[in-house]
């Protein structure tokens, strides 16, 4: 097993507020990890520390064997150049898609390879076609983001991240901003990626998705990993009271199996 990502003793505080309090996590190649927890538990911040959208207050992050930052006297410093280089190796998908509205769908997907990786025009175009096809939106290549549905925009955002051919993909509540009927197409795209062996770290409220797709589920509370394990043990047979309460809140109202034939 190849370890892609290692997080050791990760801390993050904003002023007096401690958001992450000693997170340790090791992610193997091809693994799909779903992070759940109440809002304010630190799950988004944890994700954002992995690609240094937030600079950790303490701890160490190692990507594919190389530790990020320079440690001296117990603290770690990061150069801007190292961080931009790291971000190019980590794909991120946001809650609000954040597509570039002044570019077509294809230009959005080509932007990273073109500006950051300095790929040739032919290579940029090839990657854009390939990954737009993968998310099923090759036919929208020349549209502008404003002409797409939310679900389609999010799939383009996934293609844009994939075009960098990242070593790991981060999903920060990728379906939370979508209308309920559009959530499925995005989750399906994510499941396909997981099935193809992409390493993924996913923050979501879609517990059914977590149960079906995750190799491992983490439950975060107060900036700590309170409980982790396979979906069965965390989501069906939780041990901690906080996890039980969280799941109780989510399961207050539930449909019996709808008859859809």
């Amino acid at each position: 097993m190849v370890e892609i990502l290692k997080i050791e003793g990760l801390n993050k505080s904003f002023g007096d507020l401690t958001v992450l309090d000693g997170i340790d996590l090791s992610v193997n190649k091809g693994e799909t990890i779903v992070v759940i927890g109440a809002s304010g538990s630190g799950k988004s911040t944890m994700l954002r520390c992995v690609n240094f959208m937030e600079i950790p207050s303490g701890g160490r992050i190692t990507l594919n064997g190389s530790a990020i930052g320079t440690a001296s006297n117990g603290s770690v410093t990061y150069s801007e150049k190292e961080l931009t280089g790291l971000r190019a190796r980590v794909g991120m998908v946001f809650q609000h898609f954040n597509l570039f509205p002044h570019m077509t769908v294809k230009q959005n997907v080509m932007e990273g390879p073109k500006t950051v990786l300095k790929c040739s025009a032919v290579e940029c175009s090839r990657r854009a076609d390939k990954y737009l096809e993968k998310v099923g939106l090759g036919w929208k290549a020349d549209s502008f983001p404003s002409q797409l549905s939310g679900g389609q925009q999010q799939r383009v955002a996934i293609a844009r991240a994939l075009a960098m051919e990242p070593e790991i993909m981060l999903f920060d509540e990728a379906t939370s901003a979508l209308d309920p009927e559009l959530v499925g197409e995005v989750l399906l795209t994510m499941k396909e990626l997981a099935d193809e062996g992409m390493t993924m770290l996913i923050v979501t409220h879609e517990l059914g998705f977590a149960y079906t797709v995750a190799d491992r589920v983490l439950f975060l509370a107060n900036g700590k990993i309170l409980e982790q394990g396979d979906p069965e043990s965390v989501l069906i047979n939780p041990q901690q009271d906080a996890t039980k309460n969280f799941l109780r809140g989510h399961g207050s109202f539930r449909l019996p199996e709808p008859n859809l034939d």
């Binding site: 959208m53 931009t84 570039f100």
Partner: peptide, 21 residues
Amino acid sequence: HRGQWEAAKALGMNYTNQMRR
């Protein structure tokens, strides 16, 4: 919107490219 900065940054762009592109 802040998300535009973030998306550009997450792709690995430096500040100049975020601003310019």
